[in-house]
């Protein structure tokens, strides 16, 4: 079909609508299994450590991505960390507005080289700052399923 007028929509000319009806299962693997089991059963985070490279991985990896040694010693790194960086997220995946903006943060877990990307909970936009100490808040044990959503977010550190 020839086009004789200016088009402003991709659906103006003849076209075919399509989607990709494919579903997946992503197994956690050894390190992921250990990490989420510790969250679910004990409400704490695990990491793995490469002494040779002086790196503590959180979430844990079953290998050091620098020297490629196998890592199988899991250490409890606790649930306290600090805000390494943050953003105030306004949009849903479909471009619509979130009911309220949410603070997404990279939480560096104390004494490690890694951490968790999750929401801040009970901390306002005015209060948030880089370096702010925070602590993980988990769902009640009975509601945990062994996934990243077992974490409600990170809030002020309880002393």
């Amino acid at each position: 079909m020839a086009t004789t007028e200016k088009m402003s929509k991709t659906t103006t000319p003849t076209h075919w609508d399509a989607d990709i009806p494919v579903n997946y299962v992503y197994t956690y693997g050894l390190a992921g299994e250990a990490f989420f089991r510790a969250i679910k059963d004990r409400g704490t985070f695990l990491g793995t450590r490469c002494d040779a490279c002086d790196i503590t991985y959180v979430p844990p990896k079953a290998y050091c991505d620098r020297c490629l040694e196998a890592l199988d010693k899991y250490i409890d790194v606790g649930t306290v960390g600090y805000v390494d960086t943050f953003t105030v997220s306004f949009k849903n995946m479909d471009g619509s507005e979130k009911p309220r903006p949410r603070i997404l943060a990279m939480i560096k877990i104390e004494g490690t080289d890694g951490g968790i990307i999750h929401y801040l909970d009970g901390i306002s936009i005015e209060e948030v700052a880089l370096g702010l100490p925070v602590q993980a808040i988990f769902k009640p044990k009975a509601q945990r399923k062994g996934g990243i959503e077992d974490i409600i977010g990170f809030g002020p550190v309880k002393r």
């Binding site: 979430p59 943050f86 849903n92 997404l104 943060a105 999750h118 929401y119 996934g147 990243i148 959503e149």
Partner: peptide, 16 residues
Amino acid sequence: VYNRPLRETPHAIAGL
């Protein structure tokens, strides 16, 4: 496993 369940947009990562 670690990031997708939060359903954040790619722009949120750029914001971080």
